[in-house]
Design a protein around this nucleic acid. Sequence first.
DNA 1: GTCTCCCTGTTC
DNA 2: GAACAGGGAGAC
Length: 273
Amino acid sequence: MPELPEVETIRRSLLPLVQGAVIDQVQVFLEKAVKPGPAEFEAGLAGRQITGIQRRGKYLLFELDSGQRLAIHLRMAGRLVWQNRATTLAKHTTLVMDFQDGKSLHFVDPRKFGTAVLFPPAAPPAGLTALGLEPLTTEKEALLAALKEAAARRSGPVKGLLLDQRILAGLGNIYADEVLFAAGVSPLRPAREVTAAEWEKIYGSIVRILNKALAYRGTSQRDYVDGRGEAGEFQHHLKVYGRKKELCLDCGAPLVYARVAGRGTHYCPTCQS
DNA sequence: GTCTCCCTGTTC
DNA sequence: GAACAGGGAGAC
């Protein structure tokens, strides 16, 4: 599941490959994955040069010389595969961009949840404009203030707040669990009951864990690989996520697995309160 | 603000 | 052969 560290690693790996490349032709194999419709989508990309790639939350933003942008969201299982132009397609290929230099970028997405939206600068898609703050580039005080303000008007568990992209952009299920463990805060705790001192710890854990995950080039728990097909290594450093039925690495107590904020959630009932 | 659903490969 | 995995759009 690509979250901020994975999407950023993909961005960094793809940027030197696609920057300056000119799109020759585009083929859409899953209509619902693209906006606008396939004809307009293909026409808007053909002949265009990719001038850069930005990231916002879990979105990759490909910048085109036409001024338009292509927002790609990989959702759970989407992969972007850079390869030589091919006549045969991998199973579940939803979109292919062929470049003039004989290379191709394939969007392979078994769950078919991923999306690619071509849009003019003046009309970004709703999901993008609604995004909250970037955890790694927002000043500490501004980020803490946004978290506390959101918490004050939320009755649900703190985990739900950390997953809410409208407040903080980029955390998903893996890193929300890891952050809360590192901060010693239970995912079940009502957001509005989290203390100022705990928000400090949560903030510190967000920054530290995301930076560490970036250094290890993401978590390859299931499908994730970067734009070159290389796996990350942060899965070896997870303390609670995916460790259902195992023991806490800090205190030895059995970890708990429960459904919180609609997501499978791992935590230590002893270390987190 | 919270719940449901979209999907299919993997796990139980 | 059923349950599970989950980000975000849309429904309540």
